[in-house]
Simulated assay, not measured.
Amino acid sequence: MTPAVIGIDLGGTNCRAALVGTGGRIGEIRRRPTEMVRGYDAWLAELVAGLEELLRQGEGLGLKVAAVGMGAPGLISGDGTVVASPNLPHLDGRPLAVDLAARLKRPVTVANDANASAWGEALFGAGREFNSFLAVTLGTGVGGGLVLNRRLWLGADGAAGEVGHWTVVPGGRLCGCGNRGCLEQYASARALAVSARERIAAGEASALAAIPAAELTSRQVGEAARRGDALALGVLEEAGGYLGQVLGGVANLLNLDGAVIAGGAVESFDLMQPAILRALRQHAFPVSGRRMSVVPGRLGDEAGILGAAALAGLSEQF
């Protein structure tokens, strides 16, 4: 049988999983909402049921699934325990890798989702052109993963790269991490909708005002911006400015070759890019600011899946 792994990208909103074979060949991506309203145990049972179905599918295709890799949001310890997950607090303190391995009867690696995405882009996507780069994922939250000299840098406690919790507005919006004014509260996909709702409530005119506030999404903000809606364009410019501010600080600290922007909000990257670059150049030393290229990710949903699969211990096959 042909060796394979299962790669899982667990996000704050959706969970995606797929069989990954040699050469990084990826099968059909299965998606399901990340719902934990009934608690950790019920969620885990549903996840395992879906993964067992994938295992059976793999066997039918002649694949021997030797391991499972997952990218999950939050601070993940070396043994795959979720130390803290601001966007999925039901996972806090849970030995996720051990729990999954016991049920699936296979080795399981759990890593931070942004680190998995960064490693996927490093091996197969936009990160291939950089020796050292920061990957920033704009999804439900804002994740970050560092690749230094073609190695994933996790830090002493596995907590490196958490740019989403870099303070950009002192005393600003309350973040799930307990801090106020984090980048995550102003540049994530969810934050774009929040910013738009706040501007509408303050009286700014926009076609988005016709959408019920509870139903407004970042995608709708991006679509309105492409139609020239001034409020939507302002939201994206503000978010890009905050992101560029953080990238400027990162450039000064690490003098990286580039930054790869991925996640749900990347659909609007071209509209945000001018503001990102202006703020980056404003906040970085000239030599570091010029060095850092800012590019969109190339892998979409596949980045975290491929990265998690590679981190599962079979990276030599990719």
Rank of each mutant, 00 (worst) to 15 (best):
N87Y: 05
A116T: 12
A126T: 03
L311T: 09
V221S: 13
P3T: 11
P170M: 01
G74M: 09
E129N: 03
L271E: 14
A18P: 05
G244M: 03
G249P: 06
G120C: 14
G289R: 10
S188C: 03
V194P: 02
D41A: 15
P170D: 01
S132L: 10
T81G: 12
L208T: 14
A84N: 11
R25L: 00
G228T: 03
T140A: 04
G164A: 01
L208R: 13
E215V: 06
E316M: 01
L314H: 05
A72L: 04
I76T: 14
F269W: 02
G297A: 03
A97P: 07
I261D: 06
E223F: 06
N112M: 01
G297C: 02
A210M: 03
G313T: 00
A279E: 03
A225G: 13
P212R: 08
L311W: 03
M70D: 04
L174H: 11
A207M: 15
N179D: 08
A259N: 12
V98S: 12
R281V: 03
A259F: 12
V5I: 01
L174P: 09
L134E: 07
A102P: 00
V246D: 06
V294W: 07
R281I: 02
R278I: 06
L152N: 12
A122E: 10
E215S: 14
V20C: 13
G127A: 09
G120D: 14
E35G: 02
